[in-house]
């Protein structure tokens, strides 16, 4: 469990170019959470993920890990780096080893695991991201774009982090690649990584993958709760430069036209179920 209390972070502190990226954010990540983090560019979501991953200089406010409060963030950051794996946007741009195998093994090696353990981790991670054993000896630079992305994610997954954060993992993928990646995350969650955070500005991706979500705007955490609650506040989201899935706009329109639908619908399947019920019910 990771708990942020009233965390504020300022870039270029004490300089004319100072910019507050996070402003009094409190957030609790419970074990087993599968959280969507939403916000447009510059809303502070990247800063938040980097603080959770222990990668930034100390912020103001307090951070506790597994119920332990840390007086200074630097000690907490060491704990966080052990616990949290962060997959940056376009992670394929960080590949560097001569073979796929060695690139995936980089993290586990840094964790000082034994050779056998490393081998097990690499193979397991590759399997989970759908990278076949025949690719392990290839150079990562010879793979296709989608494969590179998955190898890079495997590099973090192989460390078996308790908390896995992915920043826009589907950016630039085609619909098929995106679907494959999202179902891969669903399988990782709970089974391999206790907690998963999906950072995205695709509301459709959020709607179909996660149960709870947090919304960032101007460095503040403005919404946090079940996905259906968040998408039922469409006007507020739009005022923050965000969208709602097209389906929830259709549902809103149907409600306005007098259909007795619930506002808490945000997938095509659920909408079809409800409409079918109404029609067949003969109302």
């Amino acid at each position: 469990m990771i708990e942020l209390k009233n965390v504020t972070y300022t870039y270029n502190k004490n300089e004319p170019s100072a910019r507050v990226a996070l402003n009094g954010v409190s957030l609790t990540l419970d074990d087993g959470d599968f959280l969507g983090l939403i916000g447009h560019t510059g809303s502070g979501k990247s800063t938040l993920t980097q603080i959770v991953a222990g990668l930034l200089p100390p912020p103001e406010g307090s951070v506790s890990v597994d119920g332990r409060d840390y007086a200074d963030y630097k000690t907490a950051a060491r704990e966080l780096r052990k616990k949290v794996g962060l997959v940056f946007q376009y992670p394929e741009h960080q590949l560097f080893e001569e073979t796929v195998y060695r690139d995936i093994a980089f993290g586990p090696k840094n964790q000082k695991l034994t050779e056998d353990e490393i081998d097990g981790r690499v193979r397991e991670a590759a399997r989970r991201v759908n990278i076949g054993g025949d690719l392990l000896d290839k150079s990562p630079f010879d793979l296709s774009g989608g494969q590179k992305r998955r190898v890079a994610i495997a590099g973090v997954v192989a460390m078996k982090p308790e908390v896995l954060i992915l920043d826009e993992p589907t950016a630039g993928l085609d619909p098929e690649g995106r679907d494959e990646l999202l179902s891969m995350l669903e399988e990782l969650h709970g089974d391999w990584c206790k907690t998963v955070i999906l950072v995205s500005h695709s509301m459709e991706d959020i709607a179909r993958t996660v149960k709870t979500a947090a919304v960032m705007n101007n460095g503040r955490l403005v919404m946090n709760g079940p996905v259906e609650d968040i998408f039922s506040r469409g006007d507020e989201l739009r005022s923050m430069g965000l969208n709602t899935p097209q389906i929830s706009r259709i549902v809103d329109g149907l409600i306005a036209a007098g259909l007795p639908l619930s506002r808490r619908i945000f997938t095509v399947g659920a909408a079809a179920d409800e409409i079918e019920k109404i029609v067949r019910g003969g109302r």
Partner: peptide, 27 residues
């Protein structure tokens, strides 16, 4: 960004002797 990403994968750029440190720059 690359430094942060590799740090998140447990890379250590600060300890070790000179040769180890230069080597640790590869990622």
């Amino acid at each position: 960004k690359i430094i942060k990403a590799q740090t998140s994968r447990g890379a250590d750029f600060e300890s070790g002797n000179l040769i180890q440190r230069v080597k640790s720059m590869t990622p």
